[in-house]
């Protein structure tokens, strides 16, 4: 979560086209140090104008010599915004060989390219058509949701917004239903979804939803809300009742 500490604030952006420039601008705004790589010196000049913390490397980023120059070994993330899928896949593969820890974000023009990029080890792919299409339809039928999400995702200070609270091993609330926990009644927080162990989501869980270990409760709220929920989940009172439940289970068997 803490993206602002210096150790992990180095990013490399390959391709300084329109999208690349926008990515650089956003990254600089959020305090990252960016290295831009492109063939075109004009584009690099435009990129360098965006901020002081931008280094530039001119050359073909599909060659290893240029990649080595572009501070990939120390970088936290690489953004592949080259115009064609093949180059992006190739770039991802060569980058991951230089630095296996690298988080790679790439654009893709269709689903098959996305699949290949995922296979290569890309952390996140963005389909251009889908991104654009959803933006347009959101702008059209739910403009405020788009605004809301932009605000949550791009907030500088992360004191409010998306919360994900894990029910870790040994949490006494595991096995309880939401209704019995009185999560909404006591904390006032609305659980909008639960992420299960297998990364699937249950949206708008009902009161009868039974929590289990490794579930993640998802809600929107402030840090105070997070603390309140954590307190509730781990409250000692529950522990005794939980013990009773275990005892009952044993007796039942």
């Amino acid at each position: 979560m803490s993206y602002s500490d210096n150790s992990g604030s180095l990013c490399t952006v390959c391709g300084a086209g329109e999208t690349g420039l926008f990515v650089i601008k956003e990254l600089v705004r959020h305090g990252f140090t960016v290295t831009a790589v492109d063939l075109d010196p004009e584009a690099l000049k435009r990129a360098a104008d965006l901020g002081e913390s931008i280094g530039t490397v001119q050359g073909n980023c599909l060659t290893d010599s240029i990649l080595n120059k572009s501070a990939l070994i120390d970088a936290r993330a690489l953004f592949c915004v080259l115009p064609d899928d093949r180059s992006n896949v190739f770039l991802s593969l060569s980058a991951i060989r230089i630095n296996p820890e690298l988080e790679i974000y790439s654009v893709a023009s269709d689903i098959s390219a996305e699949r290949k990029l995922k296979l290569v080890g890309t952390r996140r792919t963005v389909n251009q058509d889908t991104a654009e299409g959803f933006r347009i339809s959101n702008e059209m039928i739910r403009p405020n949701v788009a605004k809301f999400l932009d605000r949550i995702v791009f907030a500088r200070e992360k004191t409010e917004g998306y919360l994900s609270i894990e029910i870790s091993m040994g949490c006494p609330s595991a096995g309880w239903t939401l209704k019995k926990l009185q999560l909404h009644g006591k904390t006032g927080v609305v659980i909008i979804a639960v992420r299960r162990r297998d990364d699937s989501y249950v949206y708008s869980p009902s009161g009868d939803f039974r929590l289990s270990e490794d579930d993640n409760l998802i809600c929107f709220g402030t840090e105070d809300d997070r603390e309140a929920i954590k307190d509730l989940l781990w409250s000692s009172k529950r522990e005794t009742t939980d013990r009773w439940r275990k005892l009952r289970n044993i007796l039942g068997k």
């Binding site: 999208t19 990515v23 990254l27």
Partner: peptide
């Protein structure tokens, strides 16, 4: 389109959990 795509790319590094959700 650059903004739509760029925003989603940067969202990954800023707030992966939210955007994943």
């Amino acid at each position: 389109p650059a903004i739509a795509v760029g925003k989603k790319l940067v969202a990954g590094i800023l707030n992966m959990e939210t955007i994943d959700f």
